[in-house]
């Protein structure tokens, strides 16, 4: 507003260990999504440092940041963000394509992923022909096909009904049990309470950090 600076985040001092299950909660505008974007290298802080796997990634070049996103980070969005023109299999294949993987290997890995996410019979369907739960499964499959160490989920069940939402959460928690760091943004208290570490935010600041 005017020349008054809006601080989306301030005074954040946070350390997340590898393999943790963290929920970020807070009202809208509290900065939880912004924090998630910074963790996912989609947003750059104006000041401060961000170390990932012991390496300072704050000032990496655009190309290097894209590479880190590709290799270490998997995003899961509330609105799935599937490419409507591509089939489920092609959507899942996208990160492999961006990584420059050879077509034969791509096909093997996509098939394997389709199988483990129970999507084999939906492989040739476009997003419009899939149910909400199936779409989110495709999106999670896409986020994890390059086996990232960090999963960033922004309201992953926000567009799903309770039963399907529970299925998706079970899927994400399963990936966490397999070793991934899971960071979940939600304003659903019940959902947030499932995490081993619960961080509450308000006005861009961390107000609680419970384990």
């Amino acid at each position: 507003m005017g020349d008054q600076e809006v601080r989306a985040l301030s005074g954040i001092n946070l350390e997340i260990a590898s393999g943790e299950y963290v929920s970020l909660m807070g009202p809208s505008g509290s900065g939880k999504t912004t924090l998630l974007n910074v963790l996912g290298l989609l947003d750059r802080p104006n000041s401060g440092r961000y170390e990932l796997d012991g390496k300072d990634v704050t000032d990496l070049s655009e190309v290097e940041q894209a590479r880190v996103r590709r290799e270490k980070i998997g995003f899961v969005f509330q609105s799935f963000h599937l490419v409507p023109r591509l089939t489920a299999a092609e959507n899942i294949e996208l990160p492999l394509m961006l990584a420059g993987t050879a077509p034969a290997e791509r096909k093997a890995r996509v098939d394997e992923t389709l199988l483990s996410f129970d999507l084999l019979d939906r492989a040739r369907h476009r997003p419009a022909e899939l149910s909400g739960g199936q779409r989110q499964r495709v999106a999670i499959a896409r986020a994890t096909i390059l086996r990232p160490t960090i999963l960033l989920a922004d309201e992953p069940t926000g567009n799903l009904d309770h039963r399907i939402g529970a299925e998706v959460m079970a899927l994400l928690e399963g990936l966490h049990h397999a070793g991934a760091t899971l960071i979940l943004v939600t304003h659903d208290r019940e959902l947030g309470a499932r995490a081993h570490r619960r961080i509450a935010m308000r006005d861009g600041e961390i107000v609680a950090d419970e384990r």
Binding site: G40, L42, E62, V63, A66, R67, R69, R70, E71, F75, F77, H81, V83, L94, P95, L98, A99, R142, A143
Partner: peptide, 15 residues
């Protein structure tokens, strides 16, 4: 939105 997604899953601007 699709361009944003491509960036999120690791596409550099050049791609």
């Amino acid at each position: 939105a699709e361009i944003g997604l491509l960036k999120a899953i690791g596409a550099p601007s050049a791609d």
